[in-house]
């Protein structure tokens, strides 16, 4: 068998098709676009090298960032007494973009899922407990409203409540600005179950 290096274009297609949501056809189209567009290959490779060298996990909240601690953990204007727990960095970014929360975050890096072999030791749970033990008033559980997200929140609540911290879960129901006519039956049913007096 030949040990010669693979064709660079084929290697690029192969690596691109490893990205989520990218099949081999899209990967091929993207690869040709990169080759054809002046300067794009260079810009991309510089960015990838910079990401490899300079981006990692914040050692406090496990956010993906180019500094450690990350800008959110380093921000002195944010409240230290409340932590919002999310599954992944994109969830953190979505909550932060909303601008309604000025506390700190904690990224679990996933959810509990025995089917995928993910147990408590595979998530940043020990680190969360250590932060709570260091003195916090409230932990907001903002995992996704899926079976696994709910189960993870339930697990954390059982672990954290005995430590004397207030544990809350984000509300669920009809989205702001959404029209009921276009809302799915399960969401409407859940919103009705969790209705509140005004």
């Amino acid at each position: 068998m030949s040990d010669s290096a693979p064709d660079p274009l084929e290697a690029l297609v192969h690596h691109l098709s490893r990205l989520p949501g990218i099949g081999s056809k899209t990967a091929t189209r993207l690869a040709y676009h990169i080759v054809r567009t002046d300067g794009l290959a260079g810009d991309l490779s510089d960015s990838l090298a910079a990401v490899r060298e300079g981006v990692g996990r914040c050692s406090i909240c496990f956010n993906v960032a180019s500094s450690d601690p990350c800008p959110i953990c380093a921000d002195p204007k944010r409240g230290d007494d409340i932590v919002c727990v999310v599954e992944r960095t994109p969830d953190l970014q979505a909550i932060d973009r909303a601008g309604a929360f000025r506390g700190r975050f904690h990224v679990l890096e996933g959810t509990l899922s025995p089917l995928d072999g993910i147990g408590p030791d595979d998530l940043r749970i020990k680190e969360l407990i250590a932060r709570v033990a260091g003195g916090l008033d409230e932990v907001i559980l903002a995992t996704n409203p899926t079976v696994e997200g709910d189960a993870t929140s339930l697990y954390l609540a059982r672990l954290l409540k005995p430590l004397g911290v207030k544990v809350t879960r984000i509300a669920r129901g009809v989205s702001v600005g959404a029209e009921l006519e276009y809302t799915d039956a399960s969401t409407i049913s859940r919103a009705l179950q969790e209705r509140r007096e005004i």
Binding site: L112, P114, G119, P120, V147, A151, L154, R158, L159
Partner: peptide
């Protein structure tokens, strides 16, 4: 089995 893990999956299973 981690008893808390069993408890939470039982909880989800029982509710649904």
């Amino acid at each position: 089995i981690d008893p808390t893990m069993l408890e939470i999956w039982n909880d989800k299973l029982v509710r649904a």
